[in-house]
Simulated assay, not measured.
Amino acid sequence: MFRVGLTGGIGSGKSAAAGYFRELGIHVVDADWAARVVVQPGRPALEQIAQHFGANVLLESGELDRAQLRALVFDNSEERTWLEGLLHPLIREEIINSLEQSTSTYAILESPLLIESGQHELVDRICVVDLPESLQLERASARDVNHPEQIRKIMAAQLSRQERLAKADDVLDNTAGLVELRSQIEALHQKYLQLAKP
C-alpha cells in the first residue's frame, strides 16, 4: 500500500487538504484522531495519565481534560517527554491498524507532527501544506480564536517552515487559498495514483 504523509504547521490548511483527498475517495488516517482514541475512558493510557498527573486531568465525565493536560506539559519538557513516551507508541499502533484497513489506491496519514514524532517512517512520501508564517498566524488566530502569542508558542514547538520544506517530497502552496489548493491536490492525486501502481 502506497502511503503519503500529509503535514503542515498550525493554520496551514492541512485539514482542508485532507478533506479534499477524502472527497477524491482516498482513505485518510488522522493522527489527532488516533491521539484521542488512545486516551478514551477504559483505555490503559488514560488510567496511567490520571495516576501520573492526578485526577484533576479528568473531566466529570471521566474523559481526559485535554486543555488541563496541555497546560501541565506545554512548558515542562520533562513531563512532556514522559507523556510522549507513553502515548507515541500507542498512537503509532492505532495509525498502523487504520492504514492497514485502507481499501483506496493509496492512503494518507494526516499528522501535524509527522516528522517530529517519527510517524514519517510509516509513509513513502511526505507532502507539506505550506504558506508564509505571517499568513499561518493570521489564519490560525481567525480559526481558533486563540491569542497570537499562544499560536506563536505552538509554532515554536513544531518544526520550522524551512525544516519541514527540507523534508518534503511534495509541497502544496496554500498562500492563495482553498480554490487554488484544491486544484493542486487534484494534480497531486493523479501523480499519487501513478506512483501507487504496482
Rank of each mutant, 00 (worst) to 15 (best):
F2V: 05
R3S: 08
V4P: 04
L6H: 04
L6I: 05
L6V: 10
G8T: 04
G9Y: 03
G9L: 02
S12W: 08
S15M: 00
S15N: 02
G19K: 10
Y20G: 00
Y20L: 10
F21E: 03
F21C: 03
R22W: 02
I26F: 02
H27S: 12
D30R: 01
A31K: 13
A35E: 02
R36M: 05
R36C: 09
R36D: 01
V37W: 13
V38F: 00
Q40T: 10
R43K: 15
R43N: 14
F53G: 02
V57M: 05
S61A: 10
L64R: 07
D65E: 11
A71L: 07
A71S: 10
V73T: 09
V73M: 05
N76P: 06
E79G: 00
R80V: 01
T81A: 15
T81H: 11
W82Y: 15
E84S: 07
G85W: 00
L86N: 03
L86D: 01
L86P: 02
P89N: 01
I91S: 08
I91C: 03
R92Q: 12
E93V: 00
E94I: 11
E94T: 06
I96T: 15
S98W: 09
L99F: 04
L99N: 10
E100D: 14
E100H: 11
E100R: 14
Q101G: 12
Y106P: 08
E110K: 05
S111C: 13
S111K: 10
P112T: 09
L114S: 11
I115Q: 01
I115F: 08
I115V: 14
E116N: 03
S117F: 03
H120S: 15
E121F: 05
V123L: 04
V123N: 03
I126L: 07
I126S: 04
C127P: 11
V128Q: 06
V128N: 04
V129Q: 04
D130P: 00
D130N: 08
L131F: 08
P132T: 01
E133D: 15
E133Q: 14
S134Q: 10
Q136K: 07
E138V: 01
A140L: 01
A140K: 01
R143I: 06
N146W: 13
N146R: 14
H147M: 06
H147Q: 14
P148M: 12
E149K: 09
M155R: 08
A156D: 12
A156K: 15
Q158V: 08
Q158R: 09
L159H: 12
R161V: 07
R161A: 08
R164W: 00
R164Q: 04
A168R: 05
D169S: 05
D170C: 10
D170F: 15
T175F: 12
T175E: 14
A176Y: 09
E180M: 10
R182A: 14
S183Y: 09
Q184A: 09
E186G: 00
E186Y: 06
A187L: 13
A187S: 15
H189E: 04
L193G: 02
L193V: 08
Q194D: 12
A196G: 06
P198G: 13
